[in-house]
Design a protein around this nucleic acid. Structure first.
Lengths: 139, 139
DNA sequence: CGGTTAGTGTAGCCATGGCTACAGATAGCA
DNA sequence: TGCTATCTGTAGCCATGGCTACACTAACCG
């Protein structure tokens, strides 16, 4: 299940991996943003970002390292691998499109921010393209 | 956490309950649809619907009974409670709006079906209203 | 240098939702 | 009636991601 980051191609097909992939996407996106903002990303930065305990973060970070999405050593800052950076970039762009789309639809910023976080993981390539067309048409 | 069916009101606030609520919504919606179609709903109907084993269904059904969303006795058909029916109706309507919205946006039926299943759980009241306005404007 | 504080790791608990394997119930048909 | 096939339940495994409690590291400051 290595390259399974968008495998929801059959209606109601549940696998263990879906939720884990969403977590991976959220984490690399957050790490990328935190590094961009304050030069380095720590376990506690992520814990505060997601409102979870540092223990939860630490275990997830270990898992993502096993998936070669990031690199971490004890008491050291967390860094994305090339693979992790590419995924982060893809997720960030998709997220931005969904957010901009909701704004264009007439939703307020706060709601658009919250809903886009939930929606982004479920938007297929085709729907994303339709959202882009809509945004372009609005300009 | 009894009435927590749409509690994602803060950015990136994760709780154990979110995913479980989505499962509950999917199940009551499916049960309602299956009952409407073939008079009764069995464990195996749900297992086939969601592409999971009957064991998984059976455990989730037990949990949902504990939440008073449905009633089930050994080897008997599954029935929604009044509470379960109301939730199912709400979810069904929201799902239909999201599906119709994606179609109106220019997405093909297959993609709209799949994406709407994932997206529906993350659409707030406000975004849903915006989708309705968009559909109405298209007519 | 030592002490306090913030950060991190580990152990171990829980709930959820995947699974296989096996056992028991139900129903339909010869 | 009894066989067979389908359905359902139970036991028990796993991964994920929540948590608290406790221990250790590191860093900063007096």
């Amino acid at each position: 299940m290595n390259e399974a980051y968008s495998d929801r191609s059959v209606p109601y097909t549940r696998t263990r991996g879906h939720h884990a992939n969403e977590t991976a996407e959220d984490y690399v996106e957050a790490i990328s943003a935190i590094v961009a903002e304050k030069k380095e990303c720590r376990v506690l930065d992520l814990a505060r970002h997601f409102n979870v305990s540092h223990v939860t973060v630490s275990r997830i970070v270990r898992r993502l390292q096993g998936e070669s999405l990031l690199q971490s050593s004890p008491y050291q800052p967390i860094e994305l691998t090339a693979k992790g950076s590419m995924l982060a970039e893809k997720v960030k762009q998709r997220h931005e499109v969904v957010y901009a789309f909701l704004l264009a639809l007439g939703v307020d910023r706060q709601t658009a921010q919250i809903d886009s976080e939930g929606i982004e993981h479920h938007v297929s390539r085709k729907t994303l393209a339709a959202m882009k067309r809509f945004i372009a048409g609005k300009k």
